[in-house]
Design a protein around this nucleic acid. Sequence first.
DNA 1: AACACGCACAACCGCCTAGTG
DNA 2: ACACTAGGCGGTTGTGCGTGT
Length: 213
Amino acid sequence: MGRSPCCDESGLKKGPWTPEEDQKLIKHIQKHGHGSWRALPKLAGLNRCGKSCRLRWTNYLRPDIKRGKFSQEEEQTILNLHSILGNKWSAIATHLPGRTDNEIKNFWNTHLKKKLIQMGFDPMTHRPRTDIFSSLPHLIALANLKELMEHHSWEEQAVRLQTEAAQMARLQYLQYLLQPPANSMETFSNNMNSTVTDMETYNLLNSLSSFER
DNA sequence: AACACGCACAACCGCCTAGTG
DNA sequence: ACACTAGGCGGTTGTGCGTGT
């Protein structure tokens, strides 16, 4: 019900945190725990709203936060979980110890989303895109077909077609792996028990992205 | 050197939900 | 059952930095 009034109070500081503010927050929480976030700023001597303090602590100052680049395994985990859970960042974060929902959300928006789009997948459905732009490579391929037939031997064309067929098979396999099942934990656990390992999926992603270059 | 641009990420905003009286 | 609040969540914006021109 209704919006929390804490941030409507005027005179509270906004914007980037200073090292001094960080220290005050860390010291207070280490000594007393965070308790009520609403009451914390006053007790800790901070001119911030409780919400801002909570966010700063959970997303940046918490001692168990893992910083730095996401590993390949983490990246694959996010892809897998996002295909199942969607934009449930906090739910995804529970499967990645030391990572915050905010960090995962940012990583998704700046890296993974683009990666999927580049590979021709809809980042929301994890299915191949069906719009005109995703079809463009196929249309170009068709347009080039005539020229191909005129300038290359049958042997060359056979090798090329064989390579492309293999890539297409891998693409379809990946499509199958990334298919979002019905939103139930049953299908989730089925997926988790599938014989396909994270590494296999990751290798497929890599092989496909290198193919597109 | 100066400017424009894009990227990454920290932080904020507004809505939703669970808990409480 | 209802009103109210704190905390949590996801979307969006702001800011600093690196890179290209």
